[in-house]
Design a protein around this nucleic acid. Structure first.
Lengths: 166, 166
DNA sequence: TATTGGATGATAATAATTATCATCTGAGCG
DNA sequence: CGCTCAGATGATAATTATTATCATCCAATA
C-alpha cells in the first residue's frame, strides 16, 4: 500500500504533541508567546480542514473577540516561516497557467518563483491504474517540489522582501 | 533516473503540435475559434514560464491592443475546462494552512475542495537523499491529487457554479 | 447573407492580502 | 515586582487578483 490516508487519530496525536512544545519552540526561536499566537496555533492544529485565514479568525474570535484579521494573516505567515505550519496553496499568490497538459510536475524556486517542468515516471507508476483512495475517486495529480535555483543561490540575497511578481 | 527536467526542445515540439490542432479541437468541442483565443493559446504555449494572466495579457496586447484583461482571465479558465491548459495554482483561490508539517501530501475534492492528508512512502523514497535536480537545490515537495469525494459523487450536482468557499 | 448564441470590451464589484501606524505587551533585567 | 523596549497587535486604508454585469459584436451555421 503506497498511498494511504492519514487517520484522524494519528493527526490528532501529532497535533497534541506539536501544541505541547509550541511555546518552548517559540522562545527558542526568539518569538514572543502571545495569547493570540497560542490561540491561532491551537485553532490550526485542532482543525483537519486545512482552514483559510478567515476560518481561523472566526474560531479564534470566540476567545479573543478583539483580535484583528490582519493578525491572523500575519501570524499564519509567521508560523510557516518558523516551520510550525505549511501553506497548502504553496508559493503562488495568483493563478499561473501551463499549456502543457501531459502528465508532468513542477520544481519551483522559493525565492524567484521560477518554475520548471519535471517528469517522474515512477510517480506515474505509483498513481497509474489507481482510480480510488478511501472516499475519493482520483482524477490526476500535481507534484510541486520546492527548491532554490542556482541563480538565487549565487546571489546570496537574504531578507524576506516581496518577491518579484513576474 | 526517476526525476528529470523536461527539455526545452521537447516542450516546444509539444507546444507546436498542440497549437496546430487547437482550432479543430475547439470546433469539435463547440467553442468558437476567435482571434483572441488563438492569440491567448499561442502566447501560453510559447511560454515556458507558467505565466500569470497579466503576462499573457501583456503579450497578447501587442497584437490585440483592445483586448480586455477580463477576456484573458475568462479564456484561460475556459482553456483549463476544455483541457487545453492547466492551472498550476490548482484548485485554491486563497491560502489554506496545515499545522501538520510531517512529510505528507493531499487529496482534494475538485467539487467541494475538501482536503485529506495522505502519505506516500514510495514517493518519499524517490525524493529522499536527492538534494539537487539540474539547476535546483531541492527543499521539499507537496503532491496534490485531484479527486471527487463520495459525498459530491452521490449528489450528482453538475453545473459549474461558484464552489462554496468553506 | 441573415441569424443568433456565445464571445468580447469596458467597467464596476468583490474579496483576499498587505501596508501603515499608533498603541500595547511579553520577557529579560534590575 | 516594576521598568524598558523590541516586537506584537488592532484598526483601518490600500492594493490587487479575480469575477460579475451588460451592451455590443462576431463566428458558425443555414
Amino acid at each position: 500500500m503506497e498511498l494511504q490516508l492519514v487517520s484522524e487519530g494519528r493527526r490528532a496525536g501529532y497535533a497534541a504533541r506539536r501544541l505541547a512544545e509550541f511555546a518552548e519552540r517559540c522562545r527558542k526561536g526568539g518569538l514572543a508567546v502571545t495569547p493570540q499566537r497560542l490561540a491561532i496555533i491551537r485553532a490550526l492544529l485542532a482543525s483537519a480542514e486545512h482552514p483559510r485565514a478567515d476560518a481561523i479568525y472566526a474560531q479564534v474570535r470566540k476567545e479573543h473577540p478583539h483580535i484583528s484579521l490582519a493578525t491572523v494573516h500575519r501570524t499564519l505567515e509567521t508560523l510557516c516561516e518558523i516551520g510550525e505550519a505549511r501553506k497548502v496553496t504553496m508559493l503562488h499568490d495568483s493563478a499561473r497557467y501551463d499549456g502543457n497538459v501531459m502528465p508532468h510536475h513542477h520544481v519551483v524556486c522559493v525565492k524567484c518563483r521560477r518554475i520548471r517542468d519535471i517528469e517522474i515516471p515512477e510517480l506515474e507508476r505509483i498513481l497509474d491504474g489507481r482510480s480510488e483512495l478511501g472516499e475519493f475517486t482520483l482524477l490526476g495529480s500535481s507534484l510541486e517540489i520546492h527548491a532554490v535555483c542556482d541563480r538565487c543561490n549565487s546571489r546570496r540575497v537574504r531578507g524576506r522582501g516581496k518577491r518579484s511578481r513576474g
